[in-house]
Simulated assay, not measured.
Amino acid sequence: MTTRAFQPTLPELLVEEKVRHALLEDLGRAGDITTQAVIGSDRQATARLNAREPGVLAGINFARAAFRLVDPAIRFDTLAFDGERLSPGQDIAIISGPAQGVLSAERVALNFLMHMSGVATHTARYAAEIAHTSARITCTRKTLPGLRAAEKYAVRVGGGSSHRYGLDDAILIKDNHVAVAGGVGAAIRAARGFAGHLVKVEVEVDGLEQFEEALAEGPDVVLLDNMGPALLTVAVSMNRKLSGLSVDDYPRNRRRVLLEASGNVSLDTVREIAETGVDYISTSKITMAAPTLDLGLDIGVV
């Protein structure tokens, strides 16, 4: 029996909040004075939103919200949907209605759509490189302030997965936590004593000695930081030895943990990293280094 993978979504209230903030930033204290100065309030316009290069679409609801919030009289007819692979010249939507509103909403709509589609497209490149393995590409908390939900949504649209959304939804013990806590084992034990039964505990290690110490404490996930493929392969082997035992044979607090590789991840290295057998590969590059996707809006006047 296979598990159905549902299309990721974002609540409309969250989308509207982000778009409203962006519109207020752009409209400033007096609104779009250029459009007010040169376009009559009675003029109508029809625009085609289209792709200028191939990529993965993400953020169509953000674009729709931008036009609706500026002027509810604007009609937004969607021709392509999030997750769809776009071809150059392909129409994404047709926008029609009062010209002033269409012009005033254009930039914010495109900013969201181009950035989010760029993140989805870049994520899809990484996912394609490791599709032959069981590893998943995942994003991190390294996102643009205020846009975390949008960027993490775009990662999922592009075929990636999300790490924790913030500091409050999982425990991730980093190297500085380990240093202050007095060691990997001490940090994991303290975390286990604090966490509720639904809170995952992950610990970062930078060598096999720390990794072995972590395995003895049985965290949910171990992050293997800046380890090359050779060390990653050894770590995977050490971890798999535990999974070969029956449940009754496990030491009380030891079991197979999920392994996450991080550091020095790029399109040139991600395939080799995935082939070591790790479960997840996390990188900030799919959010912080994703180029925007070239989309445009061609407008006509009625």
Rank of each mutant, 00 (worst) to 15 (best):
M1V: 12
A5R: 15
P11M: 13
L13G: 08
L14V: 13
L14D: 09
V15W: 03
V15D: 01
E16M: 13
E17F: 14
K18H: 13
A22G: 07
L23D: 13
L23C: 10
L23V: 12
L27P: 07
G31C: 08
G31K: 01
T34L: 07
Q36M: 13
A37C: 05
A37D: 04
I39F: 09
Q44G: 12
A45L: 05
T46N: 12
R48W: 09
L49W: 00
N50K: 13
E53G: 06
E53S: 14
V56Q: 04
A58V: 15
G59F: 00
N61P: 06
F62S: 00
F62K: 00
F62W: 09
R64P: 05
A65D: 06
A65Y: 07
A66D: 05
L69T: 02
I74H: 11
I74N: 03
F76K: 01
D77Y: 05
L86K: 00
L86H: 03
G89M: 02
D91L: 05
D91T: 13
A93E: 03
I94R: 15
S96Y: 03
V102M: 06
L103T: 12
R107N: 02
V108W: 00
V108D: 01
L110D: 14
H115S: 05
V119Q: 00
T123Q: 07
Y126H: 14
A127I: 05
A127F: 02
I130K: 04
H132Y: 02
I137C: 05
T138K: 08
T140F: 05
R141Q: 13
T143W: 01
L144A: 10
L147M: 13
R148W: 02
A149H: 11
Y153I: 13
Y153T: 07
A154E: 06
A154C: 07
R156I: 01
V157M: 08
V157L: 10
V157S: 09
G159R: 01
G160P: 01
R164E: 00
R164W: 04
A170I: 11
I171W: 04
K174Q: 08
D175N: 09
N176S: 03
G182M: 00
G183F: 03
G185A: 09
A186E: 14
I188W: 06
A191F: 07
A191I: 09
F194S: 11
A195E: 08
G196I: 03
G196D: 12
E204L: 02
F211C: 08
E212T: 15
E213D: 15
A214F: 01
G218K: 12
P219Q: 05
D220Q: 06
D220E: 09
V222N: 09
G228I: 10
P229E: 03
L231V: 06
V234S: 15
V234E: 14
A235R: 02
A235D: 02
S237G: 10
M238A: 11
N239I: 11
R240L: 14
S243P: 02
V247T: 14
R252Y: 10
N253T: 11
R254V: 12
V257W: 04
E260R: 07
A261M: 08
S262W: 12
S266W: 04
L267Y: 10
L267H: 10
E272N: 13
E272Y: 02
E275C: 09
I281G: 01
T287W: 06
T287R: 04
A290F: 01
T292G: 09
L293I: 03
G296D: 15
G296C: 05
G296T: 04
V302C: 08
